[in-house]
């Protein structure tokens, strides 16, 4: 049990340690104002109505922050007023909040997209949907970014 205990200490077994600011691999963090400015530029100042028809899917814990799968979808007929023009993704604690903007057309058939993104640390990922009728929806998910192994 002594050996076991020493090993456990050496390995910090079982401890789920999450990346925090200040580690060598974590670059500067965007100003909160930058995220707010990006949201305002997208909505033209309109206030998003909460998640509404928009769903952002992201893992609760990312195995590595360099490759985090995310999906967005908006429940929409994709015609007339019930049309999604675009969905913007932001990561509020990355060096720059911008991630991607998906632009849809009636030929998209559905307002859904999947990609893989980088997260510098544990933070909120934000999705904003712009509807043709001028409505905006916003969904948010916290993704925990882990640091792995001895190497970090």
């Amino acid at each position: 049990m002594n050996i076991n205990r020493r090993q456990a200490l050496g390995l910090t077994a079982g401890a789920a340690v999450f990346a925090v600011a200040g580690l060598r691999t974590v670059p500067a963090v965007a100003d909160v104002a930058e995220t707010e400015a990006a949201i305002k530029a997208f909505t033209g100042g309109a206030v998003p109505e909460g998640p509404g028809k928009l769903t952002l899917e992201a893992p609760e814990i990312a195995e590595n922050g360099n490759t985090v799968p995310i999906s967005v979808s908006v429940d929409s007929a994709m015609s007339g007023d019930d049309m999604v023009e675009s969905v913007m993704i932001l990561a509020e604690d990355n060096p720059n909040p911008g991630v991607a903007t998906f632009n849809f057309t009636p030929m998209s058939g559905a307002a859904a997209a999947t990609t893989r993104m980088r997260l510098a640390k544990t933070q909120n990922v934000i999705a904003l949907a712009k509807m043709a009728d001028g409505t905006f929806y916003m969904d948010k998910k916290e993704v925990k970014v882990t640091i792995g192994g001895c190497g970090g």
Binding site: G10, L11, A16, G149, G152
Partner: peptide
């Protein structure tokens, strides 16, 4: 300096977590 063998992690402690891994 950590005095680890391959076996320390991948045999004796396989299934455990090393930090978040």
């Amino acid at each position: 300096q950590l005095n680890l063998a391959c076996a320390s992690c991948h045999e004796a402690n396989s299934g455990q977590h090393i930090r978040a891994d």
